[in-house]
């Protein structure tokens, strides 16, 4: 098994009629993902067509779930309306809401996260690349691709990857694939200060997943989520973990693209996080080119 999603996971896309949502809906269909529904309020009854695929569009998430059996939603809704789209997922009791949208106001996320506490629906993101469980086909075709990651760089295997950043995730995945090591699931948790699923949440899932044998955890400056995960790994994780922290050269107080990547206190710096990673037995990649090799130094696959 993989974590969170697998080849048969039935997916809906909120915002499927927008440029961004439509583009990635097509790529997911081409990848072989079970994209079974689209949601755009007011366009219910229309059909999203691509390469012979016909995806029905619904007015509400609840209706889409009921009619198609979709359990996961990818959210491509513009920022002012994105928190509302997230909350619609928990109202419909979905398993997973994956918010790709970048630029959601912090206040909206603070409220949405509070509203989802104790609910069944797990949130990944926002401002994230989504997640991929690679398929067994050529170039990992047939997998579950939710979000904006390139599907073809993956290969099915036993390494779990978790990261805040999209392109750094692709970098790690590509390094693994080029070295013949496939992935169980790759999760981008997003670069915002308030997000749904944390590094630690994903690490726990990987630790319990029989298909995942080793883990790459990629972090950034800002916040203490990576430190929290590293301490848990030291105490509980049964699997080898390699890590990388981006932002060693970032000046304090400046936001490095991601809203969450700001050095606030002494604990937020890359150097402080790297030191804690090492103390917790994580094999630290010295550079982003070294992520897969850092793992292979402690795990032979």
């Amino acid at each position: 098994m993989s974590i969170l999603v697998h080849e048969k996971t039935r997916l809906m896309v909120q915002g499927i009629t927008g440029d961004f949502g439509a583009r990635h809906a097509r790529l997911s269909l081409d990848y072989g993902t079970q994209l079974v529904a689209g949601v755009t309020p007011g366009k219910g009854g229309q059909v999203f067509e691509h390469n012979g695929f016909k995806v029905p569009i619904f007015n509400t998430v609840a209706e889409a779930a009921k009619q198609t059996g979709a359990t996961v939603s990818a959210i491509f809704v513009p920022p002012p309306f994105a928190a509302d789209a997230i909350l619609e997922c928990y109202d419909a009791d979905l398993d997973l809401a994956v918010a790709i949208t970048e630029g959601i106001p912090v206040r909206d996320m603070v409220r949405a996260k509070r509203a989802m506490a104790g609910r069944r629906t797990r949130l990944i993101g926002p401002n994230c690349p989504g997640l991929v469980t690679p398929g067994h086909g050529d170039k990992s075709h047939g997998g579950c691709r939710i979000g904006i990651a390139p599907g073809y760089i993956h290969r099915r295997g036993n390494v779990g990857v978790v990261s805040r950043s999209g392109t750094l995730t692709y970098e790690a995945v590509w390094q693994l694939t080029c070295r013949g090591k496939g992935q169980s699931t790759c999760v981008g948790i997003g670069g915002d200060p308030v997000n749904g699923t944390s590094h630690l949440d994903v690490i726990k899932l990987f630790n319990d997943d029989p298909e995942t044998d080793a883990i790459i955890m990629i972090g950034e400056i800002g916040g203490n989520a990576e430190v929290e995960a590293a301490r848990w790994i030291k105490a509980h994780c049964k699997k080898p973990v390699a890590g990388f922290i981006a932002g060693a050269t970032a000046p304090a107080g400046r936001r490095m693209g991601h809203a969450g990547a700001v050095i606030g206190g002494a604990e937020d710096t890359a150097a402080a996080k790297i030191k804690i990673f090492e103390e917790c037995g994580i094999s630290v990649a010295a550079t982003p080119s070294d992520m897969a090799d850092a793992l292979l130094r402690i795990w032979k696959g």
């Binding site: 990261s163 060693a248 050269t249 693209g257 080119s289």
Partner: peptide
């Protein structure tokens, strides 16, 4: 000149490295 915030940050890092 990089695409993606995480990759851009780590490109700065690797130059310094």
């Amino acid at each position: 000149l990089v695409n993606g915030a995480g990759l851009a940050m780590s490109t700065m890092d690797i130059i310094q490295h």
